[in-house]
Design a protein around this nucleic acid. Structure first.
Lengths: 189, 189
DNA sequence: CTAGGTGATTTCAGCTTGTGCAATCACCGT
DNA sequence: ACGGTGATTGCACAAGCTGAAATCACCTAG
């Protein structure tokens, strides 16, 4: 018999997701989360830097996959197409199968300003990572950043639609739709 | 003789700006800020909802001015041009004269992840406000949001350059430069 | 086989953030 | 003079977060 049940971080995450959904983010205390996971408050902070961080475990994986996919892309494509193509691949491989979980998670985040702020911070960091990856492929820093931000804008627009109730199109399809909308909107001079 | 010295909020803001610059955001306590402003911790929270909020007093003014300028703009212009024109006006009237203060403020914010997150939140709210204003002028919601976000991207890019040491161009000039960069980057298919 | 190291967890004590509530006190209009 | 107003304050307290030391199943070298 192991000293402790495994996957403490994962148990904390699901407990937090449940409680945030049941009673809201502000109304649930760290002690409650830890209790439901069979752990203590202090242990929560051994796994997560703060209360919000518990909902962002997947971030690093997504970022690694996305950057890798950008670096592996066709070198002749324009920068924006490279980024968007990589996002499509990651969407298919890592996101599409978790649509339900993503909806739950997003509804919790959207209901809490603090969590929304944290998500914006993560997105900003991801934008920088994308810009760096594009930069490594010969794009100048300014264009790389603008391209990365444009791609993220399309991605976020697509994600919003993808997690809307009743929406059936895949994230990839919605992503391509968003990119078209962005091109017409910005392109019209 | 008045019961209290005037401009408590402003005094708290400058005290906070000084202390954050001297010892960093996390290392300065609310009590310190209040002390330097000749007030108490409790009074700080009467003026600002939390520790970060003290650096975002100007936000509402900027938003009002920007939205008003968008609503007052030429109805025939494409949406993105409307937004960018309004930003140029606000830049000239409210920002250009405070370049030094803006630099100081931005360097403090950039040095602290928590403040950066809060700024991203404020920017997201501003983006929504711009989108609403464009929507009221006949733009459909999706295009309005994408346009607003694109304009904010140009604005943020310009602001970064504007607060860089040694940069002498005006914010308006940098804004137009950013818009051009965005159009070439996104336009290239 | 066993002694000692490892690492996740816990306990505890403490600081800081943020809030609710009641009290203070100059100022203002009547 | 007198009561209302509003900015400020003191007090008490919940909750977030941290550092240091203690615990204890598990692993591994000898």
């Amino acid at each position: 018999m192991p000293r402790w049940k495994p996957d403490a971080a994962e148990r904390l995450e699901t407990a937090a997701l449940e409680l945030f959904g049941e009673q809201g983010f502000e109304r649930t205390t760290i002690a409650e989360i830890a209790d439901r996971a069979g752990l203590t408050q202090r242990t929560f902070f051994n796994h997560f830097a703060d209360k919000r961080e518990v909902l962002f475990r997947m971030g690093p994986d997504l970022e690694r996959a996305l950057v890798a996919e950008i670096s592996a892309g066709d070198a002749d494509l324009p920068a924006l197409d490279t980024a968007v193509r990589a996002m499509g691949v990651v969407a298919d491989e890592m996101l599409e199968i978790r649509r339900d979980a993503a909806k739950r998670r997003y509804s919790v985040i959207a209901a809490n300003p603090e969590l929304l702020e944290r998500e914006l911070g993560k997105n900003a960091a991801l934008t920088e990572a994308i810009a760096d990856a594009l930069n490594s492929r010969g794009c100048d820093p300014e264009s790389a950043f603008i391209t990365a931000a444009a791609a993220m804008l399309a991605q976020q627009t697509a994600l919003r639609a993808w997690t809307r109730p009743g929406e059936t199109r895949t994230l990839r399809e919605l992503l391509q739709h968003s990119v078209r909308a962005l091109r017409t909107t910005v392109g019209a001079s």
